[in-house]
């Protein structure tokens, strides 16, 4: 009963909304190969001119950081406010810096 599609890999879909912007993740779909993934991504994610270019990527090719590692990875940035321009108070006379 079970169909072939369960064996089809999952593809993550990225769409460039217009020239000059980066591709942005929009969702995922199953397809037998990259060509079918692009064809289906076009039908599913760009029915209203949402894009000028599509990337598809096998979901299994993505390595992700674990939510459990969030503190280890991102906490060190917490106390480094001096990395932001707003950290530096300059006299009003200095405009546009």
């Amino acid at each position: 009963m079970s169909s072939q599609s369960s064996k089809w890999p999952l593809w993550e879909v990225f769409v460039r909304s217009r020239q000059g912007l980066s591709h942005k993740h929009v969702g995922s779909l199953h397809a037998s190969d990259a060509n079918m993934a692009i064809a289906n991504a076009r039908d599913v994610y760009t029915r209203r001119q949402e894009g000028v270019s599509i990337w598809v990527l096998p979901a299994e090719a993505i390595s992700a950081s674990s939510p459990a590692d969030k503190d280890i990875l991102f906490d060190p940035a917490n106390d480094k406010v001096y990395r932001h321009a707003t950290f530096y108070n300059l006299p009003d006379e200095v405009k546009n810096m």
Binding site: S2, S6, L10, D43, V44, R47
Partner: peptide, 27 residues
């Protein structure tokens, strides 16, 4: 009607992020 098909797909994909299998849902 084509939109409805798309909506179904967005939602099946969302269910799959929770560990559900597409074919189990379809079955």
């Amino acid at each position: 009607v084509q939109d409805e098909a798309g909506h179904g797909l967005y939602l099946y994909s969302a269910a799959e992020t929770l560990g559900a299998q597409r074919d189990d849902l379809m079955d």
